[in-house]
Write a protein that binds this DNA or RNA. Structure first.
Lengths: 224, 224
DNA sequence: CGGTTGTATGACAGTTCCGTGACAAAATCC
DNA sequence: GGATTTTGTCACGGAACTGTCATACAACCG
């Protein structure tokens, strides 16, 4: 169950939001002040936080900054003010989205889903990734196993980076052909061959791969 | 330099957006149709894509779906229509944000920054559906029982996903044949066999299934 | 309770899918 | 320009998977 914390001082709006969110299948709970919201989020973190900008005491911007300091939780501002300065300031403070009241609950729900999806995306520009005794440094263009450099070719390296970028997720041979080779179509066996060669270099026992595994009928994935 | 692709058929709006984005320090370039945009993104991927919904030929929704199929690039819809249905549909199709024209360039820029920041969050946890001690992760192409990976075949996996997608509801053998195998008609015993094999793997006591249960005369369902 | 219908399961053969070694073309190095 | 490395193609063998069938079992019904 996805939990949502709503920080909003207006009782009626807060309650309406909570009800609507519960209707959508979220576990929703509220806080009337920034201080209370921060405390609740610290004690039992929600998966999303909705926050109003105009709050008594600590204002919404400061609330966002403090939430963001502790946490990567997706923050959505729900504000009555449709003003570029507010929007920019809120996003700069660390919010992920900004919607204007009154907001359709379906839209809000869709935006929360989009944020969750986005949150899963692994960044391309991670300096070095570690998979057990395997290290991949995209910037240095280098692969190490147990601290020792491994000589991989350019194609193998690109393939490995592509898999590392989506670590834990299956990539089909088609996707790999497109992303690594730029082929729109082509012989999928090509992928097999390069995966095989890569395994010879990075897996201690290439016959029983531990990181670069095959998912029969689906494709390959790199796992920790 | 951050590159942005703008897919928008109205020349004046597109040029205005491109100029404004360049002013903000982006490398911006445009496409007047979805087809052209998809091609450009495939040939030389941008870091962000802005897309209008009303495009000649292939419409914006389809364009989003195709972009998303190949790529994790952040997609922002820039549309003249402020309509909940459009917003929800666009986000469901795979967009990450939706802004209404006319849009302040500062806001757009702030939203792009927010998306980049969000994208950097490394997601260790691949999302999974949970049924008691059973976990199903479509992205990882993996099924776990009590935390331990279970090897299932592609057909079994598809079958399980289909049942999970309609968790708690009965699916008839006909429906499963159609959805999992794509058969319009066929021997319903086939479903039994695969359900049986799946039970051997995911149920602690396959003789007394707790999650993947039979509803005599109706079909099968997956329950928590 | 016996008949009927619906479901579970083991065996099996045909098929699909994957890993690998060999080899030639292409690229790179020196 | 020749040697070396890298890349892509091919073919083969083996492993894994799929669908069919037969049989046994369980649930339902009058």
């Amino acid at each position: 169950m996805t939990a949502v914390l709503v920080i909003e001082d207006d009782d009626r709006i807060r309650l309406a939001l909570l009800l609507a969110l519960e209707e959508e299948g979220y576990a929703a709970y509220g806080a009337a002040t920034a201080e209370e919201g921060l405390r609740r989020q610290r004690d039992s973190p929600a998966d999303h936080v909705l926050v109003d900008l105009m709050l008594p005491g600590l204002d919404g911007f400061e609330c966002i900054r403090r939430l963001r300091r502790d946490d990567d939780v997706p923050i959505v501002v729900v504000s009555a003010r449709d003003d570029t300065h507010d929007i920019v300031a809120a996003l700069e403070a660390g919010a992920d989205d900004y919607v204007v009241k009154p907001v359709a609950i379906k839209e809000l729900s869709a935006r929360l889903r989009a944020l969750r999806r986005r949150g899963r995306v692994v960044a391309a520009a991670v300096p070095a990734q570690v998979f057990g005794e395997l290290e991949i440094s995209a910037e240095a263009g280098e692969v190490r196993r147990a601290g020792r450099p491994v000589a991989v070719t350019r194609t193998e390296f690109r393939l490995l980076c592509e898999l590392a970028e989506h670590a834990g997720r299956v990539l089909s041979r088609q996707q790999l052909l497109r992303r690594v080779w730029g082929y729109e179509t082509g012989d999928e066996r090509l992928v097999d061959v390069h995966v095989g060669r890569l395994r010879q270099k990075i897996e201690p026992d290439p016959g029983n791969p531990r990181h670069l595994v095959t998912l029969r009928g689906l494709g390959y994935k790199l796992q920790r």
